[in-house]
Amino acid sequence: MSLERKDDHDHKGWMKSRELSPLETIYLTTLIWLDKRLRVVDYLEILEDLYYKVNMQMPKSHTEQYNLDNKFWYWYPLYALGSFSTIAYIVAAISGALLGFYYAPAAAAADGSATVAYDSVLLIMGQLNLGYFLRSVHRWAAQIMVAAVFLHMLRVYFTGAYKEPRELNWLIGIILISLTLVFGYTGYLLPWSQLSYWAGQIGVEMSLSIPLIGEWVAQLMFGGFTLSQATLQRMYILHVFFLPFITTAVIALHIGIVWMQGIAEPH
């Protein structure tokens, strides 16, 4: 170890020798602190590498190639629908998390009396400041997400964007639209109102009529062959635990693939 080498690592001295603004000082101090412990620089190198791979290798588009770039592709506004689905999903997630502070999935009787779940929704709507608005936002965000996803699928279909090499993303999309619908369905049951109850009834009957595994599915998803507390609790856990995790991960994968492959050219 030479002395010079030590100098090389004298970051404090180096920082002093530069005239840094306070912001830069704070930034560098934090960076060095983290880097000493976590070797951030190595990972930054990987990230940088990745960034350039992703961005520098960007495909040349048809519009560039054929010099059509001043031509307006009249379906282009519809290309925002995928993002709209994502945004609506985020809005629903935030408002849903807030609703979750007040909602309780309990006492699922079905004798026409208000249950704990039903009452907690009433509380949100009646007592809570801005509660009614919150519930409204959550509902509308969910509805708009479903609509956006469906329209997004149509735009992908009619622009032929599902063709090679994007078949996989189409299949992932099918999974996503199913997840979205199940999200909506499980949420629909949560207030445990008349509509919820009878929609649940259809669900149980549908599961029961699946050949061979019907009863098993009904047990798993609805906690029995008739609707009860078990049903409500399962719908709740699906809606606030399983589905959010799964859907978020699949959306990230979906968009990651779009990022890698680029948006299909409208030839």
């Binding site: 699922a108 009787a109 079905a110 004798d111 026409g112 009396s113 208000a114 249950t115 039903y118 929704v121 009433l122 709507m125 009614y132 608005f133 519930r135 409204s136 509902r139 509308w140 509805q143 479903v146 609509a147 469906f150 619908l181 909506g184 369905y185 629909y188 207030p191 445990w192 109102s193 008349q194 509509l195 919820s196 109850y197 009878w198 929609a199 009834q201 259809i202 609707l227």
Partner: peptide, 24 residues
């Protein structure tokens, strides 16, 4: 357009129309 809240669940009273949300 805030949402409505129907009556509590009642297995004894079948509503005139049973419907899921529109997207189903």
């Amino acid at each position: 357009l805030p949402p409505e809240m129907p009556n509590p669940a009642n297995s004894g009273v079948t509503p005139a129309i049973i419907l899921p949300d529109w997207y189903l």
